[in-house]
């Protein structure tokens, strides 16, 4: 009787279309986020995350439409990130059918926005998206620093201290992405997961570096409550979610 480890596919959405695409031959339209959301729901995804990478704010309307159409048909939790800066952004996403919003750069720039959003909607609505990378010169106490703009810009802020501050301010969970591991397909940054796990008592979603099902159980062992990945699911075998869940289950952790 314990809560299951959540397996979460992440879709990058640009102007209403999935970027980078997927390789499922049987999809009518591999670029349609709604069809993919359906697909992942049926495949056993515990939750879905859309990351809106749309550059121009004018095209964000299409993302709201995607969120609405997904929420109409898929009855599992939906998190949407990208472009969230203030209460009104979260309010809008919720109205369109999102269950949670994730915030990244805007919270680093102005941490009190976390208090404002969670004070208004509750802790459960806000996910702190934390892009962390290792520092070369030990310039932060934990050896990890916060980056913004998708890992392109270092901030000099200690990643573990920031995770703790965000949790204290009220975020409901933390999506911890390793910039170093991201894209390597060589496994999660377990040290990073352990360090943040030791500092916060909110749920922790591990992200970055997964290349095969065997990579997931060590992340859970290191303290992740949920695991998020993109390419493993988009370009892996069609039963990739089931394989990841089987690996986690075989390691002794509960899955749905």
């Amino acid at each position: 009787m314990t809560v299951a480890i959540r397996v979460i596919p992440c879709l990058d959405v640009d102007a209403g279309r999935v970027v980078k695409g997927v390789n499922f031959a049987d999809l009518r339209d591999a670029g349609d986020p709604v069809e993919l959301a359906h697909r992942y729901d049926r495949a056993g995804a515990d939750e879905l995350t859309f990351l809106d990478v749309t550059a121009s704010s004018g095209n964000r309307e299409t993302t709201f439409d995607v969120v609405a159409r997904t929420a109409e048909e898929v009855f599992i939790p939906l998190t949407v990130g990208g472009g969230v800066r203030e209460i009104s952004d979260v309010d809008r996403l919720l109205r369109y059918g999102a269950d949670k919003a994730s915030i990244n750069t805007a919270a680093v720039a102005r941490p009190s926005v976390i208090d404002e959003i969670t004070g208004h909607f509750g802790a459960q609505v806000l996910v702190l998206s934390l892009d962390a990378r290792r520092t070369r010169d030990d310039s932060t106490p934990s050896g990890f620093e916060v980056t913004t703009y998708g890992g392109r810009k270092g901030t000099g802020i200690d990643a573990v201290a920031w995770a703790k501050e965000a949790a204290d301010r009220g975020v409901g969970e933390i999506l911890l992405n390793s910039i170093d591991a991201d894209g390597t397909k060589e496994g999660f940054d377990l040290e990073l997961i352990r360090a943040v796990r030791a500092a916060v008592g909110v749920p922790l979603i591990a992200s970055g570096g997964a290349g095969k099902p065997e990579h997931f159980p060590p992340a859970v062992q290191a303290g992740a409550d949920a695991v998020l990945a993109a390419s493993v699911f988009h370009f892996g075998p069609t039963d990739a979610i089931a394989q990841v869940k089987a690996a986690i289950r075989d390691a002794g952790f509960p899955v749905r």
Partner: peptide, 13 residues
């Protein structure tokens, strides 16, 4: 509990 909020899929009796 160690981790709060309780977030995710759980069994019931």
């Amino acid at each position: 509990a160690d981790v709060v909020p309780h977030m995710g899929w759980n069994t019931v009796q």
